[in-house]
Nucleic acid binder design. Structure first.
Lengths: 171, 171
DNA sequence: ATTTTTGCAAATGATTTGCATTCTT
DNA sequence: AAGAATGCAAATCATTTGCAAAAAT
């Protein structure tokens, strides 16, 4: 379920759809539009997979540079209008992911190589809803992450004899 | 399922059990024991519920003060020897929780009042394991958090007409 | 004696913010 | 013009770390 190698045609469409939604949000909030930000929005929306602000800035650096301030401000706005979603895997920096037409899913994070993959489970979602209902807890969001080793990393680890267990990890 | 009001007898026993485990760990690592740290370990292990480093320091302040440095270092060691577990609910500070004789569980976090409650689900754990297995992902840990409003906060919210939706929240 | 622990202050690092300048409307 | 957006540098803030002094072996 890893998204990769999005064809050029598709990224253009995604970028355009995102900019429409973004501009609608800007108008609704009584803000102003700007070239810099629109370019950023298009680029970010078209990003494949999961990325940090730093990774994003590195990639954007190819063309004109963008200040961290504007980058973070745009990232925040895109989250406000649901174009973007962020995930905290405990490494210090947040990971972002385009949310345009991306149905909800949860993640597996490889402690060996940092690879992030996705999963969904109707069953888990249902059990979760039931648990919340029984506790009279009004569920508005959830975060479910699996940590461990992806297949290649696990194989690599099994070859060596001594393997260090992953230490403390904030759940 | 909220742990509260632990009787004095019980806290003493917990503190003692924790100090034994902690001292074993210290010896195993070739470190030295210390009064300051042992006092901290006993106090922390006996803490009920979920608390941040700041909350902890505030409570410990009643008796002699402890430096943040030592506090964090002890917190880290206690996690190393599984006396303590930490959780990140996205508020900036980590929450800690004594793990002595505390079976695994996941959490619900109230966006209204910050209350933290616990839940467990055999069903979810099983589905989780199956998902990992199918992806050939070697599962070593997981984090599952539900965000929303506890019963009192939900009632309070429904009384008012306009309720602000929780904004971006890193999952 | 030697090695570790402690506390203070300074460092870290991702993210945020103040403010003067530059866009948009 | 009037209000926002931008970039830079400075500020945040929880957590870490360097180092000299104090404690444990």
């Amino acid at each position: 379920m890893n998204r990769k190698a999005i064809p050029a045609r598709a990224t253009h469409r995604i970028a355009t759809d995102a900019s429409v939604i973004f501009e609608r949000h800007v108008r609704a909030e009584g803000l102003k539009s700007s070239q810099v930000r629109l370019g950023l929005v298009r680029a970010i929306a078209a990003m494949a997979g999961h990325f940090t602000a730093e990774m994003l800035q590195a990639r954007l650096m190819r063309r004109g540079s963008v200040s961290k301030a504007t980058l973070y401000r745009t990232l925040a706005m895109m989250q406000d209008c649901k174009l973007l979603v962020s995930h905290d895997f405990g490494g210090g920096a947040l990971y972002f992911e385009s949310a345009l037409n991306q149905p909800h899913h949860d993640h597996m994070y490889c402690l060996g190589c940092g690879a992030i993959s996705e999963f969904t489970s109707r069953g888990i979602e249902a059990l979760q809803a039931r648990i919340a209902a029984e506790a009279e807890f009004e569920l508005t969001a959830h975060s479910h992450k699996l940590y461990g080793y992806c297949a290649p990393c696990a194989r690599r680890a099994h070859k060596r004899t001594s393997e260090v267990e992953p230490g403390r990890r904030s759940g």
